[in-house]
Design a protein around this nucleic acid. Structure first.
Lengths: 209, 209, 209, 209
DNA sequence: AATGAATGAGGCTTCATTCAT
DNA sequence: TATGAATGAAGCCTCATTCAT
């Protein structure tokens, strides 16, 4: 019984998720979601009270997994180079699953800057990550593997190089005449491109130090 | 009478532009536009037929100037380094004027990928620009001033590094605790950062060759 | 099992009664009733078919006791003065238990005048009561203890003087600044006031005649 | 132009008023109001923003006239007897126009006691009226024209005797078998009945004193 | 007997757009 | 040219009721 319930609730969530972040239909109507899920529209309110709450839930659950992975990566003991490398993979993977997620995030933050805060790690945690990164960046600069750069610009570079091609997918596709296959191939090449752009030479292991 | 007319039509356009791209209120209602402009709502339809047409007109006019400048830059005889340098300036300037424009473009393209085409230079023109760029990039690679890279990734890198910080302004602000002044300062630093990230060494003049 | 059933059915009825006529929440939702009773909403339909039927049942049961008492009083052999005196007591007592009942009755009758009939004694019985009262009123008039008045106005006077202060409780409270205690005290004074208003002099016993 | 507008706005208001307070359909839907008025439902929102605001406006306007008259009467220099006499007339007149108004007021006050305050004269004004009345009542008691009674009970008596027959119209009709004509006749008799019930002897002029 | 799930009807409101002047 | 009035489509939400165990 509980299973059946959970099934339907999940069905609605997954349908909404698909519409919102996979098909990019961010304004999908409750009716559309219900139709797509093959349930009565009122059921959406039965389970989630309102469209907004459904959206929020879907968003947070969709973000959750990725956020955790990223935190984990940057908190680890790996070299900066490896961290970045893994970060890029995560980002690209996520985008292949939810092609419209990053786009939405960026748009939404512009509309409701206050909500940005809810989506970011808490102050304390962020500060800790920052210190770790800062130190690693200084090391890389000292070792000549990257050009002198502030942590802010380094991180914005990283996010830019990873994120923008995802966010601007249609633009990229149109510009270079990529079909879905071509675009995906292009995306997969990004990992090395980003690394090469950010590092003059790789650093696979701490031991090199 | 014609003057009065033009005045009102322009007033509406400018008001809409301000709401859409300066204040970021992309979903501004016809009523809101009318109120802000101090005119009757029906006038919007009188001059522009529909909200969509008004929007489109405003968008194209807003983009127009910048697009032309950029085309001009890349068609010129300058070094790649200088072109990129000037391109960055244009981009940042535009963003300071219309902080929500790039964000909108990226979002909209995702919703209506077909419209992307209207916003890009026609095939023929683009092809010509591409050849010019390709050649210049090969030269820079040959001279060792940039790492080997395809034109696609080079351009996407460029657009990423320029565009993302503009699109994701609230994210950047929140992440690094920038107020408006701090963010603007950060933006102005981007020019050199982008250049340093993309070029191992500058090339100010063709003569060096 | 039957006991358990009866328990639940009664629980629902009592809860509804409390919500409807003690808390004055006449529009209480099936969900609210269910929540308050701590049972599943569907049970209400299981036991009572529909919200309307539940309401009706609760109403009739709530009215039942009082109606019987009043019929009994007026059918008795007492003097008119004593009957009225006892009637007032009953009315005020009922109101202290169900402060919103009279208010609802009056409102509902206005909406569905047809339903009024169900709530009143049957024709035959009423006619009998009427004859008794008519005779007693004529006697009181003849004896000079009340001013000449038709039975209709006499009865409407009685019901008005008793009922209105109950129905319009919030108005009275607000008008004279009564809190709950003050209002109750005021109500208790009503008995004598009503009697004095309707009778020039009391008549405690038939023997006086 | 302004006339046409006013016409429609008034049409809606009057239609709503008729439905609410003449036909007693207090829960009339915006759709029903629109249909009855022969206009588009959205027009109701165009003129009144929301159903609630329409209702409030209609209520206040409907009450307005009567309230003013009553205030005027009690503030005048007339004898208490005459004031009461005129008060009754006003009340009965109002009820013939809006048979469901008093009923609604009483019901609504029970639901939202806080709103009662908005509908009553302000503290200050009420206090003044109270002093005037208090004095006049004392005079009447002293002169033996009314039995000793507190101002609170006197006023509640008055309002009860006037109001209840209006509020409980269907009950009265059903109880005594009155049709519309019979009920109206009954109402018109109330004036003298109320006066006789409240005063042992009339007092038409101050001069008598 | 009891329940969670599901449904359909109906209500309010907003909005872009059109009409009549 | 300009405007207030009017419209129809569409969206969200609530509720009583029924269904399937």
């Amino acid at each position: 019984m509980a299973e059946k319930t959970q099934q339907t609730e999940d069905l609605i969530k997954e349908t909404a998720m698909r519409l919102f972040f996979q098909k990019g239909h961010i304004n999908a109507t409750t009716q559309e979601i219900a139709d797509e899920a093959g349930v009565n529209r009122a059921l959406i309110h039965y389970y989630f009270r309102s469209r907004d709450l459904l959206f929020e839930k879907v968003l947070h659950e969709t973000l959750g997994a990725t956020r955790e992975k990223i935190d984990y990566i940057f908190s680890s003991q790996d070299t900066l180079y490896n961290k970045i490398s893994r970060f890029i993979d995560i980002f690209i993977d996520q985008n292949i699953d939810y092609p419209y997620l990053e786009n939405f995030l960026v748009t939404e933050m512009v509309k409701n800057p206050d909500k940005v805060k809810e989506l970011h790690p808490v102050e304390e945690k962020r500060e800790k990550l920052r210190r770790i990164l800062e130190e690693q960046i200084q090391e890389e600069i000292a070792s000549g593997r990257i050009e002198p750069i502030s942590i802010e610009h380094f991180m914005v570079n990283l996010m830019s190089l990873c994120n923008y091609p995802l966010i601007a997918k249609p633009m990229v596709q149109n510009f270079f005449g990529y079909d879905e296959v071509g675009y995906k191939k292009f995306l997969l090449e990004r990992r090395n491109v980003v690394l090469q752009t950010m590092f003059k030479q790789p650093n696979f292991s701490e031991n090199i130090k």
